[in-house]
Protein backbone atom coordinates (compact mmCIF):
# COMPACT_ATOMS: atom_id res chain seq x y z
CA UNK A 1 0.00 0.00 0.00
CA UNK A 2 1.61 3.21 -1.08
CA UNK A 3 -0.58 5.97 0.26
CA UNK A 4 -2.37 5.61 3.55
CA UNK A 5 -3.00 9.12 4.77
CA UNK A 6 -4.35 11.99 2.72
CA UNK A 7 -2.49 12.90 -0.43
CA UNK A 8 -0.12 15.75 0.39
CA UNK A 9 -1.49 19.20 -0.26
CA UNK A 10 0.36 21.30 -2.77
CA UNK A 11 2.54 23.55 -0.70
CA UNK A 12 3.39 27.11 -1.47
CA UNK A 13 0.86 27.67 -4.23
CA UNK A 14 -0.32 31.22 -4.76
CA UNK A 15 -3.70 30.55 -3.20
CA UNK A 16 -2.76 28.53 -0.16
CA UNK A 17 -6.20 28.30 1.39
CA UNK A 18 -7.00 26.12 4.34
CA UNK A 19 -8.75 22.90 3.31
CA UNK A 20 -12.55 22.83 3.60
CA UNK A 21 -12.28 19.71 5.73
CA UNK A 22 -9.34 18.65 7.87
CA UNK A 23 -9.51 15.46 9.91
CA UNK A 24 -6.78 13.92 12.04
CA UNK A 25 -7.05 10.69 14.00
CA UNK A 26 -10.85 10.53 13.90
CA UNK A 27 -12.31 7.70 15.98
CA UNK A 28 -15.94 6.75 16.57
CA UNK A 29 -16.90 3.68 18.58
CA UNK A 30 -20.19 1.93 19.06
CA UNK A 31 -20.28 -0.55 21.88
CA UNK A 32 -16.49 -0.73 22.02
CA UNK A 33 -16.13 -1.43 18.29
CA UNK A 34 -14.45 1.33 16.29
CA UNK A 35 -16.61 2.03 13.23
CA UNK A 36 -14.32 4.92 12.31
CA UNK A 37 -10.77 4.03 13.19
CA UNK A 38 -8.03 6.67 13.14
CA UNK A 39 -9.01 8.42 9.91
CA UNK A 40 -6.96 11.31 8.50
CA UNK A 41 -8.57 13.26 5.68
CA UNK A 42 -8.27 16.56 3.84
CA UNK A 43 -10.83 17.89 1.41
CA UNK A 44 -9.61 20.89 -0.56
CA UNK A 45 -11.73 23.91 -1.29
CA UNK A 46 -13.69 23.52 -4.50
CA UNK A 47 -13.01 19.84 -5.08
CA UNK A 48 -15.41 16.94 -5.31
CA UNK A 49 -14.19 14.28 -2.92
CA UNK A 50 -15.71 10.79 -2.80
CA UNK A 51 -15.56 8.53 0.22
CA UNK A 52 -15.83 5.13 -1.42
CA UNK A 53 -16.41 1.94 0.46
CA UNK A 54 -18.73 -0.98 1.04
CA UNK A 55 -21.80 -0.76 3.26
CA UNK A 56 -20.88 -0.51 6.91
CA UNK A 57 -17.39 0.83 6.19
CA UNK A 58 -18.00 3.97 8.26
CA UNK A 59 -18.80 6.44 5.46
CA UNK A 60 -22.09 7.72 6.81
CA UNK A 61 -20.78 7.95 10.35
CA UNK A 62 -17.80 9.98 9.15
CA UNK A 63 -20.02 12.37 7.20
CA UNK A 64 -22.40 12.74 10.14
CA UNK A 65 -19.52 13.68 12.40
CA UNK A 66 -18.19 16.19 9.87
CA UNK A 67 -21.66 17.68 9.47
CA UNK A 68 -21.97 18.11 13.24
CA UNK A 69 -24.75 15.56 13.59
CA UNK A 70 -22.80 13.06 15.69
CA UNK A 71 -20.15 13.35 18.33
CA UNK A 72 -16.74 11.78 17.87
CA UNK A 73 -14.78 9.80 20.42
CA UNK A 74 -11.34 11.05 19.46
CA UNK A 75 -9.48 13.08 16.89
CA UNK A 76 -9.37 16.62 15.52
CA UNK A 77 -11.94 17.81 13.02
CA UNK A 78 -12.07 21.20 11.34
CA UNK A 79 -14.79 21.96 8.79
CA UNK A 80 -14.78 25.41 7.19
CA UNK A 81 -12.47 26.52 9.95
CA UNK A 82 -14.64 25.36 12.85
CA UNK A 83 -15.12 22.27 14.97
CA UNK A 84 -18.45 20.74 13.88
CA UNK A 85 -19.16 19.59 17.45
CA UNK A 86 -19.43 23.23 18.52
CA UNK A 87 -20.44 24.81 15.21
CA UNK A 88 -23.07 27.50 15.65
CA UNK A 89 -25.96 28.34 13.34
CA UNK A 90 -23.87 30.63 11.15
CA UNK A 91 -21.51 27.74 10.55
CA UNK A 92 -24.38 25.35 9.83
CA UNK A 93 -25.77 27.77 7.30
CA UNK A 94 -22.51 27.47 5.34
CA UNK A 95 -22.79 23.66 5.23
CA UNK A 96 -25.37 21.76 3.21
CA UNK A 97 -26.34 18.17 3.91
CA UNK A 98 -28.24 15.84 1.63
CA UNK A 99 -29.18 12.79 3.64
CA UNK A 100 -31.23 9.76 2.83
CA UNK A 101 -34.64 11.20 3.76
CA UNK A 102 -36.51 14.32 2.69
CA UNK A 103 -37.95 14.97 6.11
CA UNK A 104 -40.08 17.69 4.68
CA UNK A 105 -43.61 16.59 5.40
CA UNK A 106 -45.21 14.42 2.75
CA UNK A 107 -48.43 16.43 2.58
CA UNK A 108 -46.72 19.56 1.25
CA UNK A 109 -46.16 20.35 -2.40
CA UNK A 110 -42.62 20.70 -3.71
CA UNK A 111 -42.93 24.49 -3.92
CA UNK A 112 -44.43 24.77 -0.42
CA UNK A 113 -41.54 22.69 0.89
CA UNK A 114 -38.78 24.82 -0.60
CA UNK A 115 -40.63 28.05 0.25
CA UNK A 116 -40.85 26.92 3.86
CA UNK A 117 -37.24 25.84 4.26
CA UNK A 118 -36.04 29.05 2.61
CA UNK A 119 -37.02 30.73 5.89
CA UNK A 120 -34.22 28.94 7.77
CA UNK A 121 -31.33 30.39 5.75
CA UNK A 122 -29.51 33.69 5.83
CA UNK A 123 -29.32 34.03 2.08
CA UNK A 124 -31.53 31.42 0.41
CA UNK A 125 -31.67 30.88 -3.29
CA UNK A 126 -34.98 31.84 -4.92
CA UNK A 127 -37.40 28.91 -5.05
CA UNK A 128 -38.07 29.11 -8.80
CA UNK A 129 -34.39 29.24 -9.65
CA UNK A 130 -33.67 26.42 -7.20
CA UNK A 131 -36.31 24.08 -8.63
CA UNK A 132 -35.12 24.83 -12.15
CA UNK A 133 -31.55 23.99 -11.10
CA UNK A 134 -32.56 20.50 -9.97
CA UNK A 135 -35.08 19.96 -12.79
CA UNK A 136 -38.19 20.02 -10.63
CA UNK A 137 -39.85 23.12 -12.08
CA UNK A 138 -42.52 20.94 -13.66
CA UNK A 139 -43.32 19.28 -10.33
CA UNK A 140 -43.61 22.46 -8.24
CA UNK A 141 -47.29 21.83 -7.48
CA UNK A 142 -46.91 18.07 -6.92
CA UNK A 143 -47.26 16.78 -3.40
CA UNK A 144 -44.06 15.29 -1.99
CA UNK A 145 -45.71 11.91 -1.40
CA UNK A 146 -46.53 11.69 -5.12
CA UNK A 147 -42.92 12.19 -6.31
CA UNK A 148 -40.88 9.42 -7.90
CA UNK A 149 -37.71 8.25 -6.18
CA UNK A 150 -35.54 10.32 -8.50
CA UNK A 151 -37.66 13.44 -8.02
CA UNK A 152 -37.54 13.01 -4.27
CA UNK A 153 -33.75 12.85 -4.39
CA UNK A 154 -33.69 16.03 -6.46
CA UNK A 155 -35.85 17.73 -3.86
CA UNK A 156 -33.41 16.61 -1.18
CA UNK A 157 -30.54 18.08 -3.19
CA UNK A 158 -32.52 21.30 -3.65
CA UNK A 159 -32.98 21.55 0.12
CA UNK A 160 -29.30 20.78 0.62
CA UNK A 161 -28.08 23.61 -1.63
CA UNK A 162 -30.89 26.06 -0.85
CA UNK A 163 -28.78 28.03 1.63
CA UNK A 164 -25.93 28.44 -0.91
CA UNK A 165 -23.52 26.26 1.11
CA UNK A 166 -19.76 26.47 0.65
CA UNK A 167 -19.53 22.76 1.44
CA UNK A 168 -22.10 20.13 0.54
CA UNK A 169 -22.29 16.64 2.04
CA UNK A 170 -24.02 14.06 -0.14
CA UNK A 171 -24.57 10.78 1.68
CA UNK A 172 -25.10 7.93 -0.81
CA UNK A 173 -27.05 10.24 -3.09
CA UNK A 174 -27.85 7.73 -5.82
CA UNK A 175 -28.61 4.61 -3.81
CA UNK A 176 -31.91 3.25 -5.08
CA UNK A 177 -32.03 5.41 -8.20
CA UNK A 178 -32.51 3.89 -11.64
CA UNK A 179 -29.64 4.32 -14.13
CA UNK A 180 -31.23 7.28 -15.95
CA UNK A 181 -31.94 9.15 -12.72
CA UNK A 182 -28.39 8.37 -11.62
CA UNK A 183 -26.91 9.94 -14.76
CA UNK A 184 -29.06 13.03 -14.28
CA UNK A 185 -27.87 13.24 -10.72
CA UNK A 186 -24.25 13.11 -11.84
CA UNK A 187 -24.91 16.05 -14.15
CA UNK A 188 -26.28 17.95 -11.19
CA UNK A 189 -23.15 17.30 -9.12
CA UNK A 190 -20.93 18.33 -12.01
CA UNK A 191 -22.90 21.58 -12.15
CA UNK A 192 -22.18 22.13 -8.47
CA UNK A 193 -18.48 21.64 -9.06
CA UNK A 194 -18.56 24.39 -11.66
CA UNK A 195 -20.05 26.81 -9.15
CA UNK A 196 -17.11 26.26 -6.82
CA UNK A 197 -19.05 24.37 -4.16
CA UNK A 198 -16.89 21.87 -2.30
CA UNK A 199 -18.60 18.49 -2.35
CA UNK A 200 -17.95 15.49 -0.10
CA UNK A 201 -20.00 12.54 -1.25
CA UNK A 202 -20.15 8.98 -0.04
CA UNK A 203 -20.87 6.10 -2.35
CA UNK A 204 -20.42 2.40 -2.65
CA UNK A 205 -20.40 2.64 -6.44
CA UNK A 206 -16.93 2.69 -7.91
CA UNK A 207 -18.13 4.09 -11.26
CA UNK A 208 -19.82 6.96 -9.46
CA UNK A 209 -16.67 7.88 -7.57
CA UNK A 210 -14.61 7.60 -10.78
CA UNK A 211 -17.08 9.74 -12.71
CA UNK A 212 -17.60 12.55 -10.21
CA UNK A 213 -14.67 12.85 -7.89
CA UNK A 214 -11.44 14.77 -8.22
CA UNK A 215 -10.08 12.51 -5.50
CA UNK A 216 -11.33 9.31 -3.98
CA UNK A 217 -10.77 8.09 -0.43
CA UNK A 218 -11.29 4.36 -0.12
CA UNK A 219 -12.64 3.44 3.29
CA UNK A 220 -13.04 -0.08 4.62
CA UNK A 221 -13.78 -1.32 8.12
CA UNK A 222 -13.51 2.23 9.43
CA UNK A 223 -10.06 2.88 7.98
CA UNK A 224 -9.06 5.09 5.11
CA UNK A 225 -6.90 2.77 3.04
CA UNK A 226 -6.02 5.05 0.14
CA UNK A 227 -6.60 8.56 -1.16
CA UNK A 228 -5.90 9.31 -4.83
CA UNK A 229 -7.43 10.68 -8.01
CA UNK A 230 -9.64 7.97 -9.54
CA UNK A 231 -7.18 7.05 -12.28
CA UNK A 232 -4.32 6.74 -9.81
CA UNK A 233 -6.06 4.51 -7.30
CA UNK A 234 -4.01 1.51 -6.35
CA UNK A 235 -1.01 2.43 -8.48
CA UNK A 236 1.12 -0.22 -6.81
CA UNK A 237 -1.54 -2.86 -7.30
CA UNK A 238 -2.01 -1.91 -10.92
CA UNK A 239 1.67 -2.26 -11.64
CA UNK A 240 1.20 -5.98 -11.12
CA UNK A 241 0.28 -7.85 -14.24
CA UNK A 242 -0.84 -11.42 -14.64
CA UNK A 243 0.73 -13.51 -17.40
CA UNK A 244 -1.34 -16.58 -18.31
CA UNK A 245 -0.72 -19.40 -20.71
CA UNK A 246 -1.27 -23.13 -21.07
CA UNK A 247 1.58 -25.57 -20.65
CA UNK A 248 1.22 -29.34 -21.16
CA UNK A 249 -2.54 -28.90 -21.14
CA UNK A 250 -2.57 -27.18 -17.73
CA UNK A 251 -3.28 -23.47 -17.19
CA UNK A 252 -0.35 -21.54 -15.75
CA UNK A 253 -0.18 -17.99 -14.43
CA UNK A 254 2.42 -15.68 -12.96
CA UNK A 255 1.67 -12.43 -11.14
CA UNK A 256 4.53 -10.02 -11.65
CA UNK A 257 5.45 -6.38 -11.75
CA UNK A 258 7.72 -7.20 -14.74
CA UNK A 259 5.61 -9.08 -17.30
CA UNK A 260 8.10 -8.36 -20.09
CA UNK A 261 10.75 -10.35 -18.28
CA UNK A 262 8.35 -13.26 -17.83
CA UNK A 263 7.45 -13.09 -21.51
CA UNK A 264 11.09 -13.02 -22.56
CA UNK A 265 11.74 -16.18 -20.60
CA UNK A 266 8.62 -17.82 -21.99
CA UNK A 267 9.51 -16.91 -25.56
CA UNK A 268 13.06 -18.11 -25.07
CA UNK A 269 11.71 -21.45 -23.85
CA UNK A 270 9.42 -21.69 -26.89
CA UNK A 271 11.61 -20.69 -29.86
CA UNK A 272 9.05 -21.88 -32.42
CA UNK A 273 5.31 -22.03 -32.62
CA UNK A 274 2.63 -20.39 -30.49
CA UNK A 275 2.34 -20.40 -26.73
CA UNK A 276 -1.22 -21.60 -26.17
CA UNK A 277 -3.68 -19.14 -24.51
CA UNK A 278 -0.99 -16.52 -23.84
CA UNK A 279 -2.29 -13.31 -22.28
CA UNK A 280 -1.06 -10.42 -20.15
CA UNK A 281 -3.68 -8.63 -18.07
CA UNK A 282 -3.54 -5.77 -15.62
CA UNK A 283 -6.14 -5.30 -12.88
CA UNK A 284 -8.88 -2.85 -13.79
CA UNK A 285 -10.18 -0.22 -11.39
CA UNK A 286 -12.72 -2.59 -9.96
CA UNK A 287 -10.13 -5.29 -9.23
CA UNK A 288 -7.99 -2.68 -7.51
CA UNK A 289 -10.92 -1.43 -5.47
CA UNK A 290 -11.93 -4.91 -4.38
CA UNK A 291 -8.39 -5.66 -3.32
CA UNK A 292 -8.09 -2.40 -1.43
CA UNK A 293 -11.35 -3.02 0.39
CA UNK A 294 -10.79 -6.72 0.93
CA UNK A 295 -7.23 -6.27 2.19
CA UNK A 296 -8.30 -4.52 5.35
CA UNK A 297 -10.85 -6.99 6.57
CA UNK A 298 -7.99 -9.04 8.01
CA UNK A 299 -6.49 -5.95 9.54
CA UNK A 300 -4.22 -4.94 6.69
CA UNK A 301 -1.42 -2.38 6.86
CA UNK A 302 -2.33 1.09 8.01
Amino acid sequence: MTTTGPAPLRQGTAIDRAPAVRVRGLVKRYGGRAVVDDVDLDVRRGEVFALLGPNGAGKTTTVEILAGLRRRDAGEVTVLGEDPATGDRRWRDRVGVVGQTTGAGDALTVLETVDHYARYHGQPQGSGELLAAVGLEGAARTRVDALSGGQRRRLEVALGVQGRPELLFLDEPTTGLDPAARRQFWTLVEGLRETGTTVLLTTHYLDEAAQLADRVGVIAAGRLVEVAPPDALGTALRREATVRWTEDGAPRSVVTPEPSAVLRDLLAATPTGEIPDLSVTRPNLEDVYLRLVGGTSEGGPR
Binding site: R89, R90, R94, Y120, G122, A133, V134, R164, E166, T195
Partner: peptide, 18 residues
Protein backbone atom coordinates in the same frame (compact mmCIF):
# COMPACT_ATOMS: atom_id res chain seq x y z
CA UNK B 1 -31.63 18.39 -15.14
CA UNK B 2 -29.92 21.63 -15.99
CA UNK B 3 -26.67 22.84 -14.55
CA UNK B 4 -27.12 24.05 -11.02
CA UNK B 5 -26.87 27.79 -10.74
CA UNK B 6 -26.43 27.78 -6.99
CA UNK B 7 -23.31 29.66 -6.10
CA UNK B 8 -21.97 29.52 -2.59
CA UNK B 9 -22.64 32.70 -0.71
CA UNK B 10 -19.57 34.72 0.21
CA UNK B 11 -18.81 33.98 3.87
CA UNK B 12 -17.87 37.62 4.40
CA UNK B 13 -21.20 39.06 3.34
CA UNK B 14 -23.47 36.19 4.27
CA UNK B 15 -26.19 37.44 6.62
CA UNK B 16 -26.90 35.58 9.84
CA UNK B 17 -29.66 32.98 9.58
CA UNK B 18 -33.06 34.09 10.95
Amino acid sequence: MTTATTRPADPGTRPAPP
